[in-house]
Design a protein around this nucleic acid. Structure first.
Lengths: 176, 176
DNA sequence: AGCATAAGCCAACAGGCGTTGACTTGTCGC
DNA sequence: GCGACAAGTCAACGCCTGTTGGCTTATGCT
């Protein structure tokens, strides 16, 4: 997929057409313009599987495993990344992901904290995908999936169920 | 800064020149081409201040405060973001940042873990900057600096000094 | 077979891009 | 004043882009 590897700007309709062994005019006939073509490429599937059976204290690890597995595919991350060039589509996609996590967070804790917890979870996931797949930053890029999941699992768990330190001081987590 | 707000591809030399109330040919005379101009724009200053006087168990919060403050400036984050389009410059910049943190990590823990710990810290920082400034994802985008720093401080602290769960299981952090 | 519709191809358009080179204007030291 | 050199302007180049319209070929229905 051209959009995934090159981003929106550097992807040309001619290149997409050539990939599909088709004329560029055909692409235009079916998608009318570049933006529509792009939006058609990034239709999103659900981020998380059904987690209702998972014990609360294993959510972090379960999510970590799912996410690390899915977002080790450069095509998936690249596509997600390409949304950055279009503020509108970026907002759609990422608030959707955030809300999926927020729904989960609302079930296991105070609903008024759900959005914030979800956004924090999302920030760690996005940062990891970015560093690992886009930047190929070592040693993250070469780590095994299981090890990687184990590293971020406690953090996701903390964001979901831990003490956020609402008073602004260090919070209980550090002092322990 | 055009590169910061529009990224590399969408920034035109003509626009940069117009910003500076100068002819485009002048830009070429001084920077020879677009890539050189870009590299000149992203010269990096040190990520962290001197942290030698900070107690080990307050490193997370101190770093969090510094980073959140610095990377709330959309221009700074945008510029960092623009590096993504050029794999080479992206690698230069981000490994540099990682190594600064790794140096710190090596002073307070096993040196063989320093790179990994630093990369994890970096992933959380990058993810937060991305979600907050590029994506403007709520509620992160509107949170106060102090609150934001307090949220990620425990995580940075954990990545720097905590148990990484090297065996691949949940690690001590969750079970506590 | 005949025909409507889809699939596919080709050439071209208008516009924007990075980049170039020739040219004019200002600013110094002497 | 005068020559050297930097600063600045202008028009144009070749190229690539998204997009268009007209043309030819295949496909399937009656």
């Amino acid at each position: 997929m051209q959009f995934a590897t090159n981003g929106y700007e550097r992807t040309t309709i001619r290149a997409v057409a050539a990939d599909a062994r088709i004329d560029a005019a055909m692409v235009m006939r079916y998608f009318t313009n570049k933006e529509t073509l792009f939006k058609a490429c990034i239709r999103q599937d659900p981020l998380l599987p059904d987690l209702s059976g998972v014990p609360t204290d294993e959510l972090g690890l379960t999510i970590a495993r799912t996410i690390v597995l899915r977002w080790s595919d450069p095509a998936a991350v690249g596509l997600l990344w390409a949304t950055t060039t279009n503020q509108e589509t970026a907002n759609d996609i990422h608030t959707n992901y955030r809300d999926q996590i927020a729904q989960l967070a609302a079930r296991i804790g105070p609903p008024e904290q759900a959005l914030e917890r979800a956004a924090l979870v999302g920030s760690q996931i996005a940062g990891l995908a970015f560093a690992r797949v886009v930047l190929k930053l070592q040693p993250l890029a070469d780590m095994q999936l299981a090890a990687l999941a184990a590293r971020i699992a406690p953090v996701l768990q903390h964001y979901l169920t831990g003490d956020l330190g609402l008073t602004g001081d260090l919070g209980s987590m550090i002092r322990r």
